Simulated assay, not measured.
Amino acid sequence: MGKTATSSKIQIQTLRDRGMELDLPEEKIKEILLDIGYYRLGFYWNPFEKNKSHEFNGGTKFSDVVKLYYLDVDLRNILSRYINRIEINFRTKVVYYVSNKYKTSSTWFIDPIVMNSRFISTINDYYNDKFKNNNRTIQLHHKKYPKDTYAPAWKTLEFFTFGSITKIFKSLNDQDIRKRIANEYNVLNLNKFVNLIDTIVFVRNTCAHGGVLFDFQIPEGIAILPGINFNSNNRHSLDSCIKIISYILNSVSESRRIEMDELIKDLFKNHKDNNVIRGIIESKIGYKFD
Rank of each mutant, 00 (worst) to 15 (best):
R178N: 04
K179C: 06
T104W: 03
S105Q: 09
R178F: 04
S164A: 15
F160A: 11
S117M: 12
Q139I: 02
K144P: 00
Y127K: 01
I168N: 01
I123Q: 00
M115N: 03
D125P: 00
L140K: 14
Y126F: 14
L172H: 06
S117E: 12
F160T: 09
I165F: 08
D125F: 09
S105F: 09
T149H: 07
F159M: 03
S106N: 04
F109N: 00
K170D: 01
I181K: 14
N124M: 04
Y96R: 13
Y126V: 05
I123D: 00
K103D: 01
D125W: 09
N124W: 07
I120F: 13
T149E: 11
Y96N: 11
I113C: 04
K144A: 12
I123H: 00
L140C: 07
S171N: 04
D129M: 08
N134I: 09
Q139R: 15
T122K: 15
L172I: 06
F119D: 03
T107R: 02
D176L: 05
K130A: 02
N128S: 01
D129K: 15
P112E: 06
L172Y: 14
N135F: 14
T149P: 00
F159R: 01
N124Y: 09
F162Q: 14
Y145K: 12
A182K: 11
M115R: 14
I165C: 02
A153N: 09
S171R: 13
N100Y: 15
K147M: 04
P146S: 14
N133Y: 08
D129T: 13
H142E: 05
K143Q: 14
Y126H: 13
A151H: 07
K130L: 08
F119E: 01
P152A: 10
I138V: 04
D148V: 08
L157C: 11
S106Q: 02
P112H: 03
P146Y: 13
D176W: 07
N135A: 02
